[in-house]
Design a protein around this nucleic acid. Structure first.
Length: 767
DNA sequence: CGGATTTAACTTTTT
DNA sequence: GTTAAATCCG
């Protein structure tokens, strides 16, 4: 029987969710409770048992990765899924928008702007506006407008309720921004949600088409939906109410992006006759890990009470790693990784290191590289956001969508071809006076006022080149257009002339982009008239690097906590579990406490990625920008009962024995015992602590001394100490900062100058 | 007027 | 350590 095959291996609540036939369904699925399983089995069950055609179902996710995972899992459950729409909110509605673009006065091949593109446009708009707009920061304006869009607030409404002059100004930029986006035949990410609503409101017959097409809508990660998405979905399902949402309020971590946690908390009020199913059995983590996770998240007030349970053994106790600074932390993580791999036959790919900010990846990366451990960083300075990639994509966007003046501005003089700001402003005024786009005016540059013939010639040459590429794009593949572009534009040539290490890196990135274009071109099949290039542009705007993550590759994975959502690893390290980092310092500015609760959920998400081993690591100091930031352990660590965890430390405690706690670097003196071989475990309550008089520590926070084991004959240096240097004479230490396995000292010498010295080489004597 | 060199600000998370 | 704006130079 079909039913049995689809239902076996499901627990009773999962089964209930899968079999539910009609009407609104809320599945509260805790971390690791098998929600993807429920969604895919439900789609298959609807198709095979309730005879719903796959083409009448719409499944929405937040990431391409989640969509891809669902698609691949469905393959074995439902052989024929033709017409089934599975994808991210953004890509599915972009698909609808391309089909219906003309209703909105757009062309089907509109550009999709990322945050950076939007900011460029906003910067330009601010310049064109009166001087009093000059104090607006493009990035904050962009964020503000994005927020207004997500919250469905109109410019008028904002103006009416503006609490400060800045908000009033942003409200004035907003409509101009929308107008220029349209002039550029471009939409930003938020428009991909907002415009379908406009479309449906203005053209009920179009809404009716999609309403009747999709008889069942399923949404993953419902806690991440914003108001706009809620309204959009609501418009689609209002008649039949066959909406199934899966989510977990404890994993809502995108509030800053406009996600409205109320959507999931109030689902039962928003729809009538809601069936609610709770999935509380966790199939991922050991008991101890779940207990730690619960200890953390249960401190939140705005949550639906629940507790995950597991049939798995309690497992190893999670470990708290304490380090002097981020280099030490990275070193500890590397050593623990190696030890675990050796002792528990774990592969590199089963280990993940998670952190709050991308900036933290550098120290970790260096440590893994030095240890010759393969690693892979997900996210970070994202591939598609690198300058050279964005430049080339801007070219391609112009070729696919010549009205995209914003992209044209970006590349008109990249590489430099003698078209500077003055020429550009002359061309722009000609375009404005004729009411044509910048691209079209390029061909008539010779008619621009005050433009010397020689320069006009360059402009026309540039236009001719783009026209050639455009012609090429109509018949040839995206990869062909790209390779020709790289050659004709002189982009590659200008880089190779630089002949620097950095330029080589950029060339490698370009080669990677060509590879991606080839890969796309090979799988491209023409549909509804789009060219290969147009289709590729549509896709690249909506993919992220994590989508290309190959789980087969035997590498340690490094990524942000946000990126880790939806993933799982046998061994998880959370690096930087410090106050001011997790939770991030800005969370304290929010007086409602909502931001702090979101930080706690983020930490919870990180913890629940772990299947067997969990390490929570914090460092007493951390290099940030050019100075050193000192902090104590995250307050979230204090929520964890001491008996659930172990501690490994390389901190030195004032008042503790002078014997340092087994910390050293490779090449240093002494060695750290491998884990499992009776590691030094330090319980703070058993350690005699002496409070520093300068900076009283909060209760329960260990006060570390920034000092490492220097060996017998190499004393540690302290700020304020008087020292003597062989050549420079005597002076005072004004700054001490750890650098690799040494200390970097700033010494102000009595002769008046300050010098930075490495402790190891300076050979300083005490005065 | 355009190109090159120097300076400054920057980092929370992302479709 | 990175990129865009500011300043300088040809």
């Amino acid at each position: 029987m079909i039913h049995e095959k689809l239902l076996k291996d499901l627990n009773p609540p999962q089964r209930e969710a899968v079999c539910h036939k009609e009407g609104p369904l809320l599945v509260l699925a805790g971390a690791g409770s098998g929600k993807t399983r429920v969604l895919t089995h439900r789609i298959a069950y609807l198709a095979r048992v309730h005879k719903v055609k796959p083409g009448r179902m719409l499944a929405l996710t937040f990431t391409n990765k989640a969509a891809g995972e669902m698609k691949s899992r469905l393959q074995s459950l439902l052989a024929d899924n033709t017409g089934l729409w599975i994808g991210t909110f953004h890509s599915m509605f972009a698909r609808i928008l391309r089909r219906e673009a003309e209703y909105l006065g757009y062309a089907a091949h509109f550009s999709i702007y990322d945050t950076d593109d939007s900011q460029r446009l906003i910067k330009k708009i601010i310049k064109e506006l009166p001087a009093e707009f000059g104090n607006l920061k493009p990035s904050s304006v962009q964020q503000g407008i994005s927020r207004y869009k997500n919250d469905l607030r109109s410019a008028e409404e904002i103006k009416a309720h503006a609490v400060n002059p800045i908000e009033r100004k942003v409200a004035q930029v907003y409509p101009e921004y929308q107008k220029q986006l349209k002039d550029n035949n471009a939409m930003d990410f938020d428009d991909l949600i907002l415009k379908p609503m406009e479309l449906f409101r203005a053209h009920p017959e179009v809404l009716e088409r999609y309403r009747s097409r999709f008889s069942h809508v399923l949404i993953d990660e419902y806690q991440d939906t914003n108001r706009a998405q809620y309204n959009l979905v609501r418009a689609l399902v209002d008649e039949h109410q066959n909406i199934c949402v899966v989510g977990d309020d404890d994993q809502s971590i995108y509030g800053w992006r406009g996600a409205d946690i109320r959507n999931i908390l109030e689902f039962e009020r928003d729809f009538e006759g809601v069936t609610t199913i709770r999935l509380e059995q966790n199939y991922r983590s050991t008991g101890n890990i779940l207990d730690v996770a619960h200890a953390v998240v249960s401190r939140n007030t705005g949550r639906k009470p629940k507790k995950l349970w597991t049939e798995k053994p309690v497992g190893a106790r999670p470990v708290i790693l304490e380090s002097i600074h981020e280099l030490d932390e990275a070193e500890q993580i590397v050593m623990q990784s190696s030890a675990i791999r050796a002792q528990e036959s774990i592969t590199w790919r089963e280990i993940a290191v998670l952190y709050r900010t991308n900036a933290q990846s550098r120290a970790l990366e260096d440590a893994f590289r030095r240890a010759s451990i393969p690693y892979r960083i997900i996210g970070g300075p994202r591939f598609y956001e690198r300058k050279e990639i964005k430049d080339l994509l801007a070219y391609l966007k112009v070729i696919a969508n010549p009205r995209d003046s914003n992209s044209l501005y970006r590349i008109i003089n990249v590489p430099t071809r003698g078209i500077g700001p003055v020429t550009l402003s002359r061309l722009t005024s000609l375009a404005n006076s004729r009411g044509e786009s910048l691209y079209h005016i390029l061909a008539e540059a010779d008619q621009a006022e005050g433009l010397p013939d020689s320069i006009a010639g360059k402009v026309i040459d540039f236009h001719t080149m783009l026209e050639e590429l455009r012609a090429l794009s109509l018949t040839e593949s995206a990869s062909k257009v790209l390779t020709e572009l790289i050659r004709l534009s002189g982009y590659e040539e200008s880089l190779s002339e630089l002949d620097t290490f950095e330029a080589q890196g950029r060339m490698d990135n370009i080669a990677e982009l060509v590879g991606a274009a080839q890969e796309f071109s090979e799988r491209f099949t023409p549909d509804n008239g789009a060219t290969c290039l147009e289709a590729w542009m549509a896709e690249t705007s909506l993919v992220s690097e994590i989508d290309f993550h190959d789980p087969e590759e035997d590498c340690v994975t490094l990524m942000t906590l946000h990126n880790a959502k939806g993933l799982e690893f046998p061994v998880v390290f959370i690096a930087g579990a410090e106050e001011n980092l997790v939770p991030i310092v800005r969370a304290f500015e929010d007086t409602t406490g909502a931001a702090l609760e979101e930080e706690r959920r983020l930490f919870y998400v990180g913890i629940t990625r772990a299947k067997e081993r969990l390490f929570l690591s914090w460092a007493a100091s951390r290099r940030r920008f050019s100075d050193i930031l000192e902090s104590g352990p995250s307050s979230f660590l204090r929520d964890i009962p001491e008996e659930l965890i172990e501690r490994h430390t390389s901190l030195t405690y004032r008042g503790a024995s002078s014997r340092k706690l087994g910390f050293s670097f490779p090449g240093g003196r002494g060695s750290r015992p491998p884990i499992g071989a009776a590691p030094p475990i330090l319980h703070p309550e058993s350690t005699p602590l002496e409070k520093s008089s300068a900076r009283p520590a909060a209760a329960g926070i260990i006060e570390p001394v920034f000092e490492r084991d220097q060996g017998v004959d190499e004393p540690a240096y302290r700020k304020g100490e008087r020292v003597v240097h062989n050549t420079f004479g005597s002076g005072t230490i004004v700054q001490v900062s750890p650098y690799l396995d040494d200390l970097k000292l700033s010494v102000r010498f009595d002769s008046g100058f300050t010098k930075k010295l490495m402790a190891r080489f300076a050979r300083l004597k005490r005065e």
